[in-house]
Amino acid sequence: MSAQTMPTQQAVSDKVIEVEILRYRPEQDEKPFPQLFEVPYSPDMSILEALQYIKDHLDSTVSFRWSCRMAICGSCGLMVNNVPKLGCKAFLRDYYPQKIKLEALANFPIERDLVVDMGDFIKKLEEIKPYIIPATDDKCLSEGTYKQTPEQMEKYKQYSMCINCGLCYAACPQYGLDSKFTGPAALALLARYNRDSRDAGSAERMKIVNQEEGVWSCTFVGYCSVVCPKGVDPAAAIQLLKVESSKDYLIGMFKPD
């Protein structure tokens, strides 16, 4: 095993790439500061692997989150040259020979180094009632499952692909300007349930949508959909919810509740 990996490591070690990390150690730093590292370059190396190299060989105190290494757990989000990316899905070859600047995900408080405090994001995901709310005259369990056609599933499928990585929040200036905004992923998740044929909770969730901090804080910058690693297109979800909210507004004018 080691005999196999050794030669390749040596072959690439003459090329190096500079990786600058914005460090922040809460117990000793007042504010974040950049620290430069030199990492042996190889074209198939991901940014997450570069971070692991740094932690293993250069500075063991660097903190960052990761788990799956395959763009599905959503924990390795960070700013790469000011663009929100998944560390495991961004590769050195796309930056080499330029320097790579890494920073914790924008718009979130930095907990330590590249780790952010996602508490607010998680709270927003919970707030939109992310579960199927069945109709009250619900059928009994003994009557069997709810059936759904492929067409009905297609209506929400895309919005259910979210991995909660938070890249869209880091890309959203409206969330950065005012964190009361429910934000892209939470609204996309809301749309995912409202558009599900088995769900009857739309009226409850529309109250969240209709608020200023619901869809109406969005100015359609559209960057959330560009950075999303899963093609969720939260900007589209929000846009469609704006249409729904406007219909809801008109209905509310004629029959106030």
Binding site: N210, E212, G214, K242, S246
Partner: peptide
């Protein structure tokens, strides 16, 4: 408490 926004008018 949910407060409805009047934005739909202006957005329309």
């Amino acid at each position: 408490k949910y407060i409805r926004s009047h934005e739909p008018i202006f957005w329309g």
